[in-house]
Amino acid sequence: MSSELLFAVVGALIFTLGVAGTVLVANLLRRILAFNLMGSGAFLVLVGLAQRGGESDPVPHAMVLTGIVVAVAATALALALLRKQHEMKDSEEELTEIDDG
């Protein structure tokens, strides 16, 4: 097995881990992490599989480069939504506490 193929297999493993994590984990921050693992696994499969013959291939490199930048933007948006949800939960609890008092 060439090391490129090895990394493609590792990518498949990480992708599977990410899928299972995204489904099973309840905490939203952990879910964002697991989703990012899925992305990284897919990138490894893309690049590893494309150059298992040994030569490097610029097309998947460019695709993965684009993918990494989009992934960080998606992560930041998800984190913004998570923080908003947290803030709203906080103010909701404050409101109910005032009602109880």
Binding site: A12, V23, L24
Partner: peptide, 16 residues
Amino acid sequence: VIAAALVFGGLLINAI
């Protein structure tokens, strides 16, 4: 989910 993930991962690696 874990069983499904194991089957999925196995098939994926096999395919790769």
